[in-house]
């Protein structure tokens, strides 16, 4: 696993001049690869880094971002209420429990994808650009209207995939669709649920394989982590867990988005008792630094 992120950084730096109001859509094509988890974690990590972040859940009828953030009880208005002018945009923004820099614009659970149009989403993004550094748009699975809506207001995209055939194939399709859209200036690949042990035994496609097949720039490699399930259960993004490797990987993604040069984690070392002890100490050192 010897990947450098020079190329990724190059492109980020070009955009570094305009630090505010970046609209990034997080998409995947296939469902269940970790779009919403990625959204919640990158958003939280960016907010922890001092950026003003708003997340828009565009998965109308199947909203989940609120659950991952533990905000499900605080939602009063949704994006549909904004569009149908039952409330002002700012009223609909739900503030995070811990971080005042972080907001959520929730999806409506009782409506379908046609309740909001591309134009309306574009307008909402434009409006939010004025007040936030980052607008993260959580895209529904599929390539239909929900996808088209989510992409409409964005100028950057993160394509989430896993090293599985079906996920890579769908990611390829999504990349094709993103390339066809002029407003998307750049897209990057986030490889989720990577299992170093399976890669080592040649039972799973490696990071390099996926990058080569999709020929896309990589922005993050997230290891498979059971902690994701517990963090979802608690409604607390895993980036808040300093010990978690997946959390570390997500924090690194956030730093790369900001424009920092962060090397990719070496996941292959994470096996055996010795490695576990090492990891334990590394965790301690990590804590001391902060």
């Amino acid at each position: 696993m010897t990947l450098t992120c020079e190329k990724v950084i190059e492109k980020d730096n070009k955009k570094g001049d305009i630090m505010s109001g970046r609209v990034i859509v997080i998409t995947s094509g296939k469902g269940g690869v970790g779009k919403t988890t990625t959204n919640a974690n990158i958003g939280t990590a960016l907010a922890k880094a001092g950026k003003k972040v708003v997340m828009i859940d565009t998965d109308l009828g199947l909203r989940n971002l609120d659950l991952l953030l533990g905000l499900e009880n605080r939602i009063v208005y949704t994006i549909v209420d904004v569009v149908e002018e039952r409330c002002k945009l700012k009223q609909a923004l739900v503030k995070d429990k811990k971080n005042p820099n972080l907001c959520l614009l929730a999806a409506a659970q009782t409506r379908d994808k046609t309740a909001v149009t591309e134009e309306q989403l574009k307008d909402i993004c434009e409006e939010l650009k004025k007040d936030f550094d980052f607008i993260l748009v959580d895209c529904p699975a599929g390539i239909e209207q929900g996808f088209q809506n989510a992409v409409a207001g964005a100028s950057e995209a993160i394509v989430v995939t896993t090293p599985e055939m079906s996920a890579v194939r769908d990611a390829d399709r999504i990349i094709g669709l993103l390339e066809a859209r002029e407003e998307i200036k750049s897209y990057k690949l986030l490889l989720n649920r990577v299992r170093p042990n399976m890669i080592k035994s040649n039972d799973m496609m490696s990071v390099e394989d996926v990058v080569e097949i999709l020929s896309a720039q990589l922005i993050g490699i997230i290891p498979e982590d059971t902690g994701i399930i517990t963090s979802t259960n608690k409604g607390e993004p895993i980036v808040n867990d300093e010990k978690s490797l997946a959390g570390q990987a997500y924090r690194n993604v956030a730093r790369r988005i900001i424009g920092e040069d962060v090397p990719f984690l070496d996941l292959e070392e994470e096996t055996g008792v010795v490695a576990k002890v090492k990891k334990f100490f590394a965790g301690l050192i990590g804590k001391e630094k902060q």
Binding site: R169, D172, N202, D203, M204, M205, D209
Partner: peptide, 19 residues
């Protein structure tokens, strides 16, 4: 021929068709 190789080859073939 490992599972990984099979996956890569099948994917490349299917993506050629898709694209």
């Amino acid at each position: 021929e490992s599972a990984k190789e099979v996956a890569c080859n099948r994917l490349k073939f299917v993506l050629m068709q898709d694209r």
